[in-house]
Amino acid sequence: MSGLDGKVALVTGGAGGIGRGICERLAAEGATVVVADLDAAAADSIAAVIGGKGLVLDVTDPASRVAAIDFCAVLGGVDVLVNCAGVLKDARIATFEPALFRRLVAINLLGPLALVRLAAPGMIEKRAGRVINLASRAWLGTFGSTAYSTAKGGLVGATRSLALELGGGGITVNAVAPGFVDTPMTDGLPPHIRQRAIDSIPIGRAGRPDDIAGAVAYLAEAPYVTGQVLVVCGGRSIGNPFAA
């Protein structure tokens, strides 16, 4: 038996590198996982493997968000909401296109918050629920990541306030902040950039999706942890990055 037996977990971006790892882990812990992603075929494929449900979800589309919550209601309602969908595009501040900035904020911040609003009433009714927002180590600041770090910082701040607002209803709200993780999103980095990133990680390797999934699974079952940011970065966020 696991604490997630009989629970319904909605994982946005569930077909991405980290998202897939989270779906697999939560399913292994007993949850019925709704693999929600823009890529319908990939979502269905993963859902088939883990015994979950595939769902097309565009986190920036209000109707799509409502449809996702309605889909989960048929299964018993969202018990665990994992806001994992995210997009990273970097540019120097002077040339950052406002439209791109807004799109990244919509995907990485506004969509997740809107989903929390939609999922919360059902959780409040059950007097139980877990919201886990995937932030990023970029919340601490990263060269060229103005939009991404702004959105992820906003998500961290909202996590803290939502934890205070929803805690009395038995709902915990936390964030996980991954560091450099091997995913299709990071595969395209130039080799020297990738190596420099790995050299800055005390553990000595890039993160793996399961490293992040383990943190999410922990928070999905933890009843007395809320409003926190769990940084899963192999130690990259401590120490002096310029020290030998």
């Binding site: 911040l109 918050l113 919340w139 702004t150 910082g153 909202a158 306030s161």
Partner: peptide
Amino acid sequence: MGASAVTNGVLSMART
């Protein structure tokens, strides 16, 4: 939630 999203978003922007 909204105020925290904006202020913490700006905080992270400042860090970057």
